[in-house]
Design a protein around this nucleic acid. Structure first.
Lengths: 339, 339
DNA sequence: TTGACAAATGAAAGCGCTTTCATTTTTCTA
DNA sequence: TAGAAAAATGAAAGCGCTTTCATTTGTCAA
């Protein structure tokens, strides 16, 4: 059963040194003489020695695991963030351990417990709305923690994100400026970030005296392109005079666009469409769809770098990074004639 | 630094039993008397004991880690597979460790080595085109292995997938049957699965005497919706008489559709479009796009279940699962008048 | 050259579990 | 009720590393 796997002591024997020296050559090469270090490296290559992470973790009371908690593996927004994380992790000795919370704070709590039991080197968690129990666990975790996707006061440790509220606010102002009067909100899933986008939306319209609650259509269902089509149908049944929609995200926006094509509703003249996140396809849709670009891959990368810095004893503080957003104006909101 | 974390022996002391018994109560409850078992459970809850996975791994020479190797975290195809895996893993004691090979066999080799060093409980790898070294490692791995996404002879251990060749063949036949004569292939990334789709495509056209190599447009670039638009442009520049495109995947197909809308090319009459994978948005596009549905989430789920079965000592053999595919005919290939 | 100090190395004690083997307790059969 | 077999438990030896502390080796100024 147990194969004759090469272990540290085998290397030590073959190199004619003690196990301690081999361990040091691996963990802390500087304190081993060059001659010995090279001999050890040679033997390691020769024998194909690979350290056992479990043994190392047990002996040193720490691992090279970075735990990452995201609400969904299929949502491309998080996929982008993940890619950023994996890219940044490339070449380091850290391993990513992914947890899928499915947008559930309870699930998050459970996963956090499991992750923490492994003594992770660091933790990346999504959002700022952890349960009290989760927050408590994070606060007393003996590793650096980065909250991503949003910024806010009260960080557990570090943060990298942007303001969804402001992003939505900016997008809505843009619609208002372009002369739209009956601006609707289409929202799915309604997770905390979506809620804050709705706040930004509402605020902009309220300030312009244009807010009409009947133009807000939301559902707890996860957002899909199909759902975008459906929600537009609902909206128009309820308020046929809507002249623009701000979609909680790009999937919905695309669904709205398809539905407009189907119903022969002219975009942007009869209906303006604005999405959120600026997925790649927004630019190539017909017409191209206005969206709020977010820097998802960079967010993942920065989160990992923050962790790394903290692990290398970088000065703490300066732990909140606001990546901002960028309103990308495209045809879908470019009205040819202002009404 | 080292906090007074509760350990097994603390539980044992508090429960008035030996450490061995606590360990058994955790790993193998049946062999501990009910009375003792309940007492131990009570103490565990009381103290909030959480086992240290590193210690367990070291002592038992195995972990509860299932390693998963996929070529991309952003490609929604793999995201779907992942979701299937995570769903199936839900409730089991296994942890998923994700590795991103970035479509590189060398990267795969490196990750495999890292994963194997952890003595994983099981391994899920993508595709059947591992390097010789990777294959060797997999063959002598002391854990069950499932290859996903494709079927083939020569499985390392178990397999769950489908035939990309046949999927593409069926789709192409469908185009031929619908009267298209100048059928093009648009392919991006050109990974092994894409290659096999191209084979299926070519075979169908060859059999029909319609194959024209000039209608095959490929690029090593990763596929995106934008790229679909671009490739259509390339195709039409090269062969303006193309009357249908089989797209290597749905992203490209969507890009093609947008480009058609832009160029006022009538779909399906002037140009038929067929995608691959049948992403959710295919059905709601305008017109709805014909695609080859694949069962990605189920694939992930089955892969995990196969692993689980094998770990629970299920009868080996029967390790190749072909999930098939389903050609979903939609408007984008429904010609109103046969030419 | 010598002594003092720094650098390099080794010996050995764990890290927190699992597991074998031995021992005790319980259950069952005759 | 005795005796044997089964069930339950405990003692103790590791699993493969890291790390402290002690020791040896090397370096340099006097």
């Amino acid at each position: 059963m147990k194969p004759n796997r090469i272990k540290l002591s085998d290397v030590a024997d073959a190199a004619g040194v003690s196990a301690a020296t081999v361990s040091r050559a691996l963990r802390n090469p500087d304190i081993v003489s060059q001659k010995v270090r090279e001999r050890i490296q040679f033997v390691i290559d020769e024998l194909g020695y690979v350290p056992d992470p479990a043994a190392r973790a047990l002996a040193s009371a720490r691992t090279d695991v970075i735990g990452v908690l995201i609400p969904s593996v299929t949502n491309s927004v998080f996929a982008d963030v993940l890619r950023g994380i994996y890219s940044a992790a490339e070449g380091t000795s850290y391993r990513i351990q992914l947890g899928n919370t499915r947008y559930s704070v309870l699930e998050e709590e459970k996963l956090l417990k499991v992750f923490l039991s492994q003594r992770p080197a660091g933790l990346i968690v999504t959002g700022i709305d952890q349960s009290a129990a989760s927050r408590a666990m994070l606060l007393k975790a003996e590793c650096p923690v980065v909250q991503i996707m949003e910024t806010g006061d009260r960080p557990v440790d570090m943060m990298v994100g942007f303001s969804h509220r402001e992003g939505a606010f900016a997008a809505t102002c843009h619609l208002i400026e372009n002369g739209y009067k009956r601006i609707a909100f289409l929202g799915a899933r309604m997770d905390p970030r979506t809620q804050r986008r709705l706040e930004g939306f509402s605020q902009a319209l309220r300030e312009a005296g244009l807010l009409d609650e009947r133009l807000i259509v939301t559902t707890p269902r996860p957002s899909t392109v199909t759902l975008g089509s459906e929600l537009l149908g609902e909206l128009l049944a309820r308020a046929p005079d809507a002249d623009a929609v701000f979609c909680n995200n790009d999937d919905l926006a695309l669904g709205v666009l398809f539905e407009c094509q189907r119903r022969r509703i002219a975009v942007p003249d009869e209906l303006g469409i604005c999405g959120f996140n600026d997925l790649e396809m927004m630019a190539v849709a017909n017409p191209a769809i206005t969206s709020v670009r977010t820097f998802r891959e960079e967010m993942g990368g920065r989160a990992f770098e923050l962790l790394l810095g903290s692990l290398n004893g970088a000065p703490v503080g300066e732990g909140i990074v606001d990546l901002g957003f960028e309103l990308v104006r495209r045809e879908s909101t470019r009205r040819s004639a202002l009404n």
